[in-house]
Design a protein around this nucleic acid. Structure first.
Lengths: 161, 161
DNA sequence: GGCATATAGATGACATGACAATCAAACGGG
DNA sequence: CCCGTTTGATTGTCATGTCATCTATATGCC
């Protein structure tokens, strides 16, 4: 039989303590992203993806970036960005612009409307983040959370291959 | 003009230190979930959703649970579970079963194949989690991460209304 | 110049998940 | 017993994201 079950009905796992921590971590992770997405949508009509793109675009003074560079900057797949920009362009948050230097290339440019939307959305989002996260931890705890996060993110990056 | 921009091209945000921690947290969060999903898919042909459902089903001795109870147990919307179970049933990971006690209700039951799949997938997944997370932190750090996560998850729960 | 190859991006097909609407069985008051 | 309401679950629709594929332009080698 191809069935591999050391204990019938029980999956092998971490120590009780480890499992407890891991479950809490996963739970926090799921709840927080669901909540941030819902708030962003309700308060500003933006998805987290919309928000990330608009923030990246306001981060450059010209308000326009090549697809490639934007994709690298926010660590997205090219095709994901392409789909996303098409949808955002339909809502007049951004616009595609031709690239004179390279006939294959294209720019993504934030629109006036896009600026207005992100300008209004950002402070609300920050307020939500403060309320849900920062205000729930001491400054030291939050700093520690950041430190551990950076450590893990770097580790995951190095483990990619 | 409807444009609201306190600083042209800059979104209001957190303090530099806070922002640094927050960005690291978000980055970790995105990379980890992407990586866990990719590994699970590559090693076992399961999505994180598949995995969660199968684990929940192996957690009950009978291997079958009412839709409602399963949805509550893993904190999913009813309709999400319904779609998910339909797709998993097509792959013979689970099966729907009629409910004698309540003509409206139904059970989700794990199949023999489902048991085999989760039995093989779980240890691999645990190994990935260890490699990417546990092994990157000291036991004290991991415990602290769990503690902070629990604190935040509870806070988000209480903030739901 | 002329063609092989690489690069920028777009597109199509499919899985996932949220939300709203729907359907059917159970319940409860009259 | 009958009808309105509640409850358990399904379905449709739409937004998102991944992977594979496709197109067009640029580049390099001869």
């Amino acid at each position: 039989m191809t069935d591999t079950e050391p204990d019938p009905g029980a999956v092998p796992w971490l120590s009780a303590e480890e499992q407890h921590s891991w479950r809490a971590f996963v739970r926090m992770h799921l709840k927080l992203s669901a909540r941030l997405a819902a708030d962003l949508q309700a308060q500003s009509g933006l998805s987290p993806a919309d928000f990330e793109v608009l923030v990246a675009l306001t981060d450059v003074p010209e308000g326009r970036v090549r697809f490639q560079d934007l994709a690298k900057g926010i660590d997205w797949e090219q095709s994901r960005l392409s789909h996303q920009i098409r949808r955002m362009a339909k809502r007049d948050l951004v616009a595609r612009e031709e690239c004179e230097e390279d006939g294959r290339g294209a720019y993504v440019a934030i629109s006036g409307h896009g600026r207005a939307v992100i300008g209004a959305a950002a402070p609300k989002h920050v307020a939500t983040v403060r309320r849900l996260v920062l205000d729930g931890l001491t400054p030291e705890e939050f700093a520690e959370l950041g430190r551990l996060s950076a450590k893990l993110a770097d580790r995951i990056d190095r483990a990619e291959p």
